[in-house]
Design a protein around this nucleic acid. Structure first.
Lengths: 160, 160
DNA sequence: AGGGGAAATTTGCACGCGCACGGGCACCCG
DNA sequence: CGGGTGCCCGTGCGCGTGCAAATTTCCCCT
């Protein structure tokens, strides 16, 4: 037991650092998410999913695979893809060999929307994510983020 | 315009880095949040609010001030404090001079819960947040997080 | 070949939060 | 000193997501 009083907790450097990770991520998500919604008509989550589908390329991706790229249950993935499909940004196809599975892939309209949104998003990332960091810190910061993100992925059991 | 194809977007280093910030934060929040819920009976947000109240100390904090420490509307703050009050972890008092305002402060039970939760949380932070980072990177990483968090706070207009 | 357990997706339910509005109060200006 | 403007808090509504059950299909073992 390291922490014995509320003040110990309140001023703990490590806990503060973790709080700032959450704080930075939450504020940036809100800030940049609003911009995407207003200028492109998609939420930040939907943008990230389009990005994932762009990486996946041709055969498409299963609901489960999508859910594991984000912090989502398969049910959550179903509904995100539902919305994107309704908007015509994504198309579902049957899995070629497994009739249980369905694959989601970008439509041309989805690709177009993604490109537009990415330019909007990138501008905001530069302003709010890159600019505050000292020039010489950015590369190592990104590298550490990668380590953290991968470690967290490995530690997180697949959501139902 | 920098990005012209979905592939440009999918492989853009800066966008990838931002995605990893979100990914790491979301996964860690889920992972550590579940632990807090199961072992301490409070959500991660509730924990962060207890921490904020511990820092605030005696007079207490207004709903608005709480909402601005997190990414919350005042309505959201009202409801978080409602739950914490129902659990006996927080007490509301009238603002001494302004009859519109109410102040929330930790109860002894809240302080006790906070200390317990902080120890649980800290253990998980060490394992999932500190451990994946190389020894020599941690200090600068925390420093950069602080820069980012503060910049984002300054850029984010107060939520209604 | 048949059967049972596992897997992929979808869906009803519950819950938390942003949003926007309403009531009450403070402050300032005339 | 009175009225208007604006702030603080609380609440109804809508939406998105986790959770868990149900359905369909697959796959392995006997």
């Amino acid at each position: 037991m390291d922490i014995e009083t509320p003040q110990d907790a309140a001023n703990h450097a490590v806990m503060l650092a973790f709080g700032r990770l959450q704080g930075a991520a939450n504020r940036l998500e809100y800030l940049l998410g609003r911009a995407l919604e207003q200028e492109c008509g998609i939420t930040h989550l939907e943008f990230e999913v389009l990005l994932i589908l762009a990486r996946a390329g041709e055969p498409g991706m299963s609901m489960r695979a999508i859910s594991q790229e984000q912090v989502l249950t398969t049910g959550g993935a179903t509904r995100v893809i539902d919305r994107l499909e309704r908007e015509g940004l994504v198309a579902r196809t049957q899995h070629p060999t497994d009739k249980r599975g369905r694959l989601a892939k970008l439509t041309p309209k989805g690709a177009e929307t993604l490109v537009h949104a990415a330019n909007v998003h990138l501008e905001n990332i530069k302003r709010h994510f890159l600019a505050p960091l000292p020039e010489g810190h950015r590369e190592r910061f990104a590298e550490d983020l990668k380590l953290l993100s991968h470690a967290a992925r490995d530690a997180l059991p697949p959501l139902k």
